[in-house]
Nucleic acid binder design. Structure first.
Length: 441
DNA sequence: TTTCCACGGGAAGTTAAGGAGA
DNA sequence: TCTCCTTAACTTCCCGTGGAAA
């Protein structure tokens, strides 16, 4: 028998729980779909498409509804010889400026061998390329910008809807569909952008537990064999999703994770216990991903807080974290950041749910300050750090302290392979001796 | 009611890195 | 090689905040 062996599976089609799965029908969104369909109707009539702005919290079906309707629109448009429709779908996660959005749009319109770099050109040059590529396309182009609130400036949101009126496009009609999770995003837009982008607004309200149960049942019927789910599983997944702002994506992810946990157990049914364990695993994964995404100084701040926690000094205010952070920065041969910037890193850790913050106020005697403490187990933090961090000396020292403080700490968090080296460079001998716990202060 | 303190938020400026084009 | 461009991470500065003490 090989290394891998096919599971005797509870799943009929696990892909039905994946984000990219397109169900045959969308549950609980009749009213929104009806409004959305009307807004897209001009495309089929061969008219200038409307701009549409969708907003609502994460996981309420905005993107799913868009994909669903645009698939139908594409199919229906093929019935008419005089309609040439193209759809560009761009997720703006990680695209923080109009410049980046414009370069990505150019690359979407171009062949593989003709792509442009995402830096280096003047902004005006990128726009010129975009108008040229769009106009050579002809027909109707619908541009969907998902997570549009990531874009820091609204230049592209002004330029795209007005491109034809401003004489940039002659042969192509462009329609813009913006999708946002952020309710305040619309209000922060400049009036001129708001008037064009938001000419058709569709609000997607949060799902309630009944909607979520219907959605989960629809997916589960396809994903699992009959009789695999115990009665309480779908209501429990729906309840967690409803509690977290009516997020269907989260409920579906939880159902899939519960299924994976049950499969690992070689169970024949999925129970509420599998859901709870799945939820814990998802939460852990989310936090570990957050830790991996931190900068070096973010890691150093976290290491400082971990050692403070191991020594029983938490909750601790930022100015008391600083000496340890500074020491670690020196150990890793990095210049320590100014206190203001260090506090930003602490806030970021709090936002990720890795540490918790309590605000205190001692008035005229001590003023307002915040106290920080770890909000997850030390071994979990160290495990996540050990996978990514290459801060010479620091990680080993903290693990050593953790092992002294917690003898039953799992060995998996011990220093990473090659952790004594950075990019192939051997660490100077002096650093190694300096990396002892006694040298923290 | 005013003052004071330690912060946080945000704007503006700086720096280094990476890429394009002449 | 030089200049121009964007970006991310950072520094610096100013202002606002909230509640206990004066």
């Amino acid at each position: 028998m090989g290394l891998f062996e096919r599971d005797t599976d509870i799943y009929r089609d696990r892909d039905a729980l994946r984000e990219d799965y397109q169900p045959a029908e969308l549950v609980g969104r009749d009213e929104e779909l009806s409004t959305y369909t009307s807004a897209l109707q001009p495309v089929i009539n061969g008219e200038q498409p409307n701009n549409v702005f969708l907003y609502g919290k994460t996981g309420v079906g905005k993107t799913a509804a868009t994909r669903y309707l645009l698939d139908h629109l594409r199919e229906d448009a093929e019935e008419y010889d005089d309609i040439a429709l193209d759809i560009i779908f761009l997720n703006c996660d990680g695209l923080s400026s109009s410049y980046q959005v414009a370069t990505h749009l150019v690359n979407e319109l171009r062949a593989e061998h003709n792509q442009i770099s995402t830096t280096g050109y003047p902004l005006a040059t990128v726009y010129e390329m975009l108008w040229e590529d769009l106009d050579s396309h002809g027909g109707t182009v619908l541009i969907v910008l998902d997570e549009i609130d990531n874009i820091g400036d609204d230049s592209i949101l002004y330029q795209l809807p007005r491109a034809r009126a401003n004489g940039k496009l002659e042969d192509t009609q462009v329609g813009l569909i913006g999708i946002s999770n952020d309710f305040s995003f619309r209000d922060d837009l400049s009036p001129k952008v708001k008037s064009s982008l938001c000419e058709n607004e569709i609000h997607f309200p949060a799902y309630d537990a009944t909607d979520l149960k219907a959605i989960l049942k629809q997916r589960a019927d396809v994903a699992f064999h009959d009789g695999v789910l115990e009665d309480g599983v779908i209501p429990l997944c729906a309840a967690y999703g409803a509690k977290d702002a009516g997020d269907a994506r989260q409920s579906i992810d939880l159902l899939m994770k519960a299924g994976d946990v049950a499969r690992d157990d070689e169970a024949t049914t999925i129970t509420e216990d599998h859901v709870d364990r799945g939820r814990t695993a998802l939460e852990r994964g989310r936090i570990e991903e957050g830790i991996r995404g931190l900068t070096e100084h973010g890691h150093l701040v976290l290491y400082a807080l971990v050692t403070n926690d191991l020594e029983g000094e938490t909750p601790i205010r930022s100015r008391d974290v600083r000496p340890r952070y500074t020491r670690f920065a020196e150990l890793a041969e990095r210049d320590p950041l100014v206190p203001r910037r260090m506090r930003d890193h602490l806030s970021e850790l709090a936002m990720l749910g890795i540490i918790s913050v309590t605000e205190r106020n001692e008035g005229r005697r001590g003023g307002t300050y915040r106290e920080y403490e770890l909000d997850m187990p030390v071994e979990q933090v160290l495990s996540a750090l050990s996978e990514t961090v290459k801060l010479v000396g620091v990680h080993e020292s903290v693990v050593e302290l953790a092992e002294d403080a917690m003898p039953d700490l799992t060995t998996s968090v011990a220093s990473t392979e090659g952790g004594d080296e950075t990019d192939g460079e051997e660490r100077p001998e002096a650093d190694r001796s300096d990396a002892s716990l006694a040298s923290f202060e």
